[in-house]
């Protein structure tokens, strides 16, 4: 189907309604009717300094947050993805790949578990065919899954293991600095042998959050619950007296890293969302200016 400008933006995973034309003939043609509302959407700030939202995919049920067990392992980044996944109304599952290359996998799993005890965490060696058994619970028929993670963590390797065949070319990474080569460039929904659908997205080198405030609140619900017990309603958990969040950090219930990341993500989201709103406002006033000028031009001509 060709994309025509009159159609709304459609992303992979979206559902649309078509009307069958030329009934009776052998090659039935379809005409676009309308787009169905999405269950949830993954969006990020488009790469580069320009503030623009970019839709990545729609209607995802489960999102696997892939992180490798080498020096690329980063809790802040996992929390960043969690905010994105929560905003998209998908279920997050954290996957630690290259478990065979690290000797501290158990420690990494418990670190992730400390973010949220109810979070599902898998430690796998993506090259091992047996590892896809760990994924079975999420691969049931009709489930749409997506693999998220920075470049080089083994998303393509994992996708191939889940598919049971070589479909994606993998790049292999430079193990000295764990940088991957961006191997995934197209965007497609692929049926897995188990019946689930794998959404294959290009790597996300620059994942900037925008318009995901609810997702951040959900990902950091423990901090927000603590904040309710602060003495001051507008406590920013710094030097204020009787701050429940600072007390939790002193008692060792909460890590200072997590609070810092929470505040960083909120700031980033506020900045990007605000600049998106500013852009819309600027576009609107420019449009009005054009209209006014044109109307005046018509008036002048009419004289």
């Amino acid at each position: 189907m060709s994309i025509v400008p009159s159609m709304p933006p459609i992303v992979v995973g979206g559902w649309l309604l078509l009307i069958e034309e030329s009934e009776g003939s052998q090659n039935s043609a379809y005409r676009f009717h309308r787009l169905l509302e999405r269950k949830g959407r993954f969006a990020r700030k488009a790469a580069g300094s320009e503030v623009k939202e970019q839709l990545i995919s729609a209607n995802v049920d489960t999102a696997f947050i892939v992180s490798s067990a080498n020096h690329d392992f980063n809790l802040n980044r996992i929390e960043r993805f969690l905010a994105l996944v929560n905003e998209a109304d998908a279920d997050p599952v954290v996957v630690i790949t290259k478990a065979d290359l690290a000797d501290n996998v158990e420690a990494l799993v418990s670190q992730v578990q400390s973010i949220d005890p109810n979070l599902s965490v898998l430690a796998v060696n993506a090259l091992d065919v047996a590892s896809h058994e760990d994924f079975e619970p999420w691969l049931v028929e009709g489930e749409t899954i997506v693999l998220l993670g920075s470049s080089g963590v083994g998303k393509s390797t994992l996708a191939n293991t889940l598919l049971g065949e070589q479909l994606q070319s993998t790049g292999g990474i430079r193990e000295d600095d764990s940088k991957g080569r961006h191997t995934t460039t197209s965007r497609a929904l692929i049926s897995l042998p188990q019946g689930a659908l794998l959404l294959d997205t290009p790597g996300m080198p620059e994942l900037q959050l925008s318009d995901v405030e609810d997702g951040i609140h959900e990902a950091f619900s423990d901090i927000e619950k603590l904040a309710l017990r602060c003495k001051f309603n507008d406590c920013i958990h710094g030097e204020e007296p009787d701050c429940a969040v600072q007390k939790a950090i002193q008692d060792g219930e909460l890590s200072a890293r997590r609070l810092a990341n929470y505040q960083k993500l909120l700031r980033e989201n506020a900045l990007n969302s605000a600049s998106l709103a500013e852009r819309r406002a600027a576009d609107k006033s420019l449009g009005k200016y054009y209209q006014k000028t044109q109307a005046e031009a018509v008036k002048l001509k009419g004289r």
Partner: peptide, 22 residues
């Protein structure tokens, strides 16, 4: 709409073309 429409899912996206599956 029920009788007249067919539902399809967008499965592949290219620059100016969208692949859908019914």
């Amino acid at each position: 709409e029920w009788g007249d429409v067919t539902a399809a899912r967008a499965v592949e996206q290219h620059r100016s073309e969208l692949l859908v599956d019914t």
